[in-house]
Design a binder for these strands. Sequence first.
RNA 1: GGCGCUGUGGCCAAGUGGUUUAAGGCGAAGGUCUGCAAAACCUUUAUUCGUCGGUUCGAAUCCGACCGGCGCCUCCA
Length: 468
Amino acid sequence: MLTVYNTLARKKENFVPLIENEVRMYVCGPTVYDFFHIGNARSFVNSDFIRRYLEYKGYKVNFVMNLTDIDDKIIKKANEEKITASEIAKKYSAAFLDDINLLGIKKATLYPKATEHIGEIIEMIDKLIKNGFAYNIDGNVFYDVKKFKGYGTLSGKNIEELESGSRVEINESKINPLDFSLWKKAKENEPFWESPWGKGRPGWHIECSAMSCKHLGESFDIHAGGSDLIFPHHENEIAQSEAATGKSFVKYWLHFGFLNINEEKMSKSLGNFFTARDILKIYNAETLRLFFSQTHYASQLNFSDELLNASKKGLEKIETLIERLEQKMDEDKFSNSENNFKFDNYYKSFESAMDDDFNTPQAVAVIFDFTRDANKYLSEDNITKEFLLNAKEFLKKTAQEVLGIINLDKKKNNESNLEAELIELMIRLRVEAKQNKNFFLADQIRDELKKLGVILQDTKERTTYKKT
RNA sequence: GGCGCUGUGGCCAAGUGGUUUAAGGCGAAGGUCUGCAAAACCUUUAUUCGUCGGUUCGAAUCCGACCGGCGCCUCCA
């Protein structure tokens, strides 16, 4: 039984989707005004773990992630770069999709854009006004938070305390300082859409309500995002959606912990960030994903080279096993003995880890246990073909399809035939040198190749190589 | 000020009442294998879970106090 920690309930709950065998899931996507940073990447990867495990469990997952393509930050950036807001949005939407892909994240079912849902947004605002939850002041439409009973339930805040907080921006035109924008009146030289309240653009929170409602329905199963979205963004989404539809909005709210740098939240405003695409030049997607999976999604996680390198080393261990499995397969010498390796146990452990609120650190531990045990088994003589096939299948189902920390399909022989042949030639020469007890030459060949990035490894049967 | 999360070995990190005198990764030490390496494997590396009390037959796990770290309350994954 899958359990998930629901922010709304503040405890773990059994996961039962509203429609049997189907999960409707929405994750707040990026505002496309810049490249996203590695902290954002962590959230996207965490969403990916969840989505992939739900699919592993056999659910049909309808996964929607929005792109906020009109917003103050986009307008600001457009002014800086002296191009239009839509050009900025287009550029960084494309970059977002590229980077998501580089991180090995499965494509969402849909990436709806705010600017393509202005009609739905206006309709929802209109409904909110008619239902008495919103008011229009001179072309600006605000949500009247006092009208919505239960405002603050998700974040555990109450309106009185929030009001007394000094940090709430005072806006002369709002009834209550906590009221938030649904429709923003266009200022001069700003992009705008026509609406019943005049020229303007949607506020940030309403787009998620409108788009999730359109593509997933008025009530759906999972809504996820960073912990910093709990208030006010997700709180406002609940207020908007439930006031508009009269129905319960989301069943399970999941929130991700931050990626820290020197124990401090990585963020654009603090300036202490690295873009995902820059980090991907240093560490590959598999390493990053292993790194992320080694900490629970809700915990904060510090980002450093030391920690990344530890994950990189760990990953090599799993990759070495895969190489050994493939090598044994190529040797084509199998035992006819019974296969007594208990694969079921590893599947069960993996599943019970993931069933416990997507406990990826424990799931990864199962994969490392498996790696150790499979290696042990491989050094025995009675290897069956069945074992090799099942071992690869296990890694494929868990490490590849759920966690995405390995890629069995990646073409690893991307060197030219000439290069491969030259390396094989050097290996043959070295074997000859070894047979003649010319260890000086043998070591020299090995050292020189190492300098060129080719590492030789002698095994009983043959010498293998891998590239750094 | 309000609310929330958190403190586990050298580093990272699971575990949230008994099968745990605490999984897994990195690091370190010794060993097997090897001409030597590498890889792999084996052994060792927390009688202890921030501190002090309490509840309990039994606590890292529950409760209280204290100390420390982080976050949200404003755009933010």
